[in-house]
Amino acid sequence: MIRLENLSKIYGSRENPIVALHDVNLTIQTGEFIALYGRSGSGKSTLLNLLSGIDRPTSGKIFVHAAEVTAMDENRLTLYRRDTIGFVFQFFNLLPTLTVLENVLLPGQLNKHSASKLRERGLHLLAQLGIADRHQAWPDQLSGGQQQRVAIARALINDPQLLLADEPTGNLDSETGLHILEILKSLSANHDKTILLATHSLDAAQFTDRVFQVKDGALVAQTNKAGK
C-alpha cells in the first residue's frame, strides 16, 4: 500500500515561491493501476519524482509498504529506487552507450544479481514485450515504441512492486502508445504491479483503474473505471 500524507513541494525562493504540489493526500492499494491526469506543469511529474525519491518534498510524508520514503537518507533512497521502483520515462532515457539487453540488465547488475539468471530474466522480459530479437541492437537503432518497451523491461528487471510511468506514450504515435498502455495494463492485471501513470491524455487515463485529476499542484477530482 502507498500512502501520501499532506505532501507539498515548493520551488523557488521564500519571496517568490512556486507551488508544484500542495497538500496532497492519497492512498493506493497494491496492484492498482492509477492515472494522474492533468495538463503540462500541473504537478504530475513532481508527484512521481517525489514518490520515486529522486526529489524530496518540502513537507509531508510518503509511505510505501510501511517504509517512510521521506525519512530515507540518500543511500537508502538509492536502494529503494533500485529494488522497489521501476521508472518509465516519456523520452525513454535509455543509455546510448549500452545495447538493448545491457540497458535492461543495468539495474539488476547494480544489484549484483547472478549474471546468468539476470540475462535469462532480461531476455524473457524482452520476449514478453516482443523485442527479444533486437536485444543486441543499440537504442538509436530502435523505433520509439521499441525503445519504450526496452525502458519497460528495464523498469521490471528487479521485479519492483511499484511502476512509475511519466507520460510513457507522450512521445509515441497513437497506435504504438496504445500498445504500451496495454502492456502496462497487463502488468497490473496479471503481475500484481502497482502502477502510477502520469498523462495529459484522457484516452490513456481511461486504461487505468482510477484517475486522479491534478490541477495547480492539487488532486482535484477522482474517477473510477466506471467513470464515477
Binding site: 529522486i54 536502494l79 529506487r81 533500485r82 529494488d83 532515457n93 539495474p107 547494480l110
Partner: peptide, 16 residues
C-alpha cells in the same frame, strides 16, 4: 548530466 541522472534514477548509488 542527463545520463548520470538516468543512472541515479534506475538505482545507481554514489559509490557506483
Amino acid at each position: 548530466t542527463r545520463e548520470l541522472g538516468i543512472l541515479r534514477a534506475v538505482g545507481m548509488g554514489f559509490g557506483q
